[in-house]
């Protein structure tokens, strides 16, 4: 079962390999992550998990029960909490800080959970990838949905019919993203490809739950050359 951290999307850029290939990456930074609660099978909860928190909060923003929850464990007041189901909760202590380099290493596959960009009330073409209608040649009907049902039988519109409506701003999980590099001194990881949400959006990154699959294992092997051929500058120097 996967352990993960709560982080923040910084933005996208690219890194170059020694042979000149460029790899698109998303930069994710991590504030200090604390283990807030350890849940074990023998304990009150009856299942194994770690409650992890990050992003410090002011007292006025939290409820009294939550403040008590943090104070009891000697953890600063935190804004975001997330539970990770892990196999070995006994190895962690409440109040312990989780380090980026302990959780992720280059070459891992991770899942990233984020809130997608909100698109407001969107039409069927944007929301459901409908083809729409021709823009010209006498058409006066361009981006509309079209027909939504049959005739007297069934005499109603099917449930779940794809129509315009609110789109985006919902939790999205992207699975099996490749960790290109881990920078422990900046608390940053680089992930190949894109990640849901806007820049500065909060994302949850965890060890991929589908990493055991054969296709993912092959992918991991296929992408291994990226970590080996990264063009990297010496520490401290900037271009």
């Amino acid at each position: 079962m996967p352990l993960g951290l709560i982080g923040q999307k910084v933005g996208m850029t690219r890194v170059l390999l020694k042979d000149g290939t460029s790899v698109p990456v998303t930069v994710i930074k991590f504030p200090v992550n604390y283990v807030v609660q350890v849940k074990t099978e023998e304990g009150k909860d009856g299942y194994k998990a770690l409650q992890v928190g990050a992003f410090e909060a002011k007292e006025k923003h939290l409820t009294k029960p939550l403040i008590g929850h943090f104070k009891k464990r000697g953890v600063p007041l935190l804004r975001r909490l997330w539970e990770f189901r892990v196999d070995n909760p006994e190895e962690f202590k409440e109040g312990q800080e989780l380090k980026v380099q302990d959780v992720f290493k280059p070459g891992d596959l991770v899942d990233v959970l984020g809130i997608s960009k909100g698109r407001g009330f969107a039409g069927a073409m944007k929301r459901w990838d409908f083809a729409g209608f021709p823009k010209s040649h006498g058409h006066r009907y361009h981006r509309a949905v079209g027909a939504i049902g049959q005739r007297t039988d069934p005499g109603r519109v099917w449930k779940g019919k794809r129509m315009p409506g609110h789109y985006g701003a919902e939790p999205i999980r992207v699975q099996g993203l490749f960790v290109v590099d881990v920078l422990p001194d900046e608390n940053v990881i680089l992930v190949k490809g894109s990640v849901p949400g806007h820049n500065k959006g909060i994302v949850i990154v965890e060890q991929s739950t589908i990493a055991y699959r054969k296709s993912q294992q092959l992918k991991k092997k296929r992408l291994e050359f990226i970590t080996q051929n990264l063009v990297k500058e010496e520490k401290g120097s900037e271009a």
Binding site: T13, V27, V188, K232, E233, A239
Partner: peptide, 17 residues
């Protein structure tokens, strides 16, 4: 558009020319 941190990290993966 790009944040300071992003630029700093970009600098690390770029060979000086």
């Amino acid at each position: 558009m790009s944040s300071e941190l992003l630029r700093k990290i970009e600098g690390r993966y770029v060979q000086k020319k």
